[in-house]
């Protein structure tokens, strides 16, 4: 009763913003190591949207690459085709995975040769203004996950 409504409002906002920071989580981040002459690499991760609102992944940046795009490998009638996507929509309370043979980050023109074991900084920007910095480990090609893991 001693607290003013203004103070309570401040607390509420503070709690909400802390919650917003944790509402999107990035897990299982890795970049597929490529032969040294290859100038396009692929990156993978999972976005966990814990919030009650859908959110879009709008951009990705890295000091280690000139440009990053979102791509989807689609295989239709046995033919694999890469499709560029402007944004990636993640519904409320759900996970979205970038994984080999499906959605992937296209990492163009590395500033230097990336080797397995290195950590690459990535910044992911979402439509609600959230920026998330992650460290992606460069790993030697992994096989597509077995379907029973899904």
């Amino acid at each position: 009763m001693r607290y003013s409504s203004g103070f309570l409002f401040f607390i509420l906002i503070a709690v909400q913003s802390v919650f917003a920071q944790n509402s999107i989580e990035i897990t299982d981040v890795w970049i597929n190591e490529a032969p040294p002459t290859v100038k396009i690499l692929a990156g993978y991760f999972t976005i966990n949207n814990h919030s009650d609102d859908p959110v879009d992944l709008v951009t990705a940046h890295s000091p280690s690459f000139q440009k990053i795009e979102f791509h989807l490998t689609e295989t239709q009638d046995g033919v694999a085709r890469m499709q560029k996507l402007e944004t990636i929509s993640i519904p409320a309370q759900s996970d979205f995975s970038f994984s080999p043979g499906e959605y992937h980050l296209m990492l163009f023109n590395p500033v230097k040769t990336t080797k397995a074991g290195e950590m690459i900084s990535l910044q992911l920007t979402f439509s609600n203004g959230t920026n998330i910095d992650v460290e992606a480990e460069v790993k030697r090609s992994e096989l597509p996950p077995h379907h029973h893991h899904h």
Binding site: N32, A42, H104, M106, S141, E142, L143
Partner: peptide, 14 residues
């Protein structure tokens, strides 16, 4: 093709 970052390296590793 060698500029293929996703499905080619995965398949060749496999």
């Amino acid at each position: 093709f060698t500029h293929c970052p996703d499905i080619c390296p995965i398949t060749l590793s496999l």
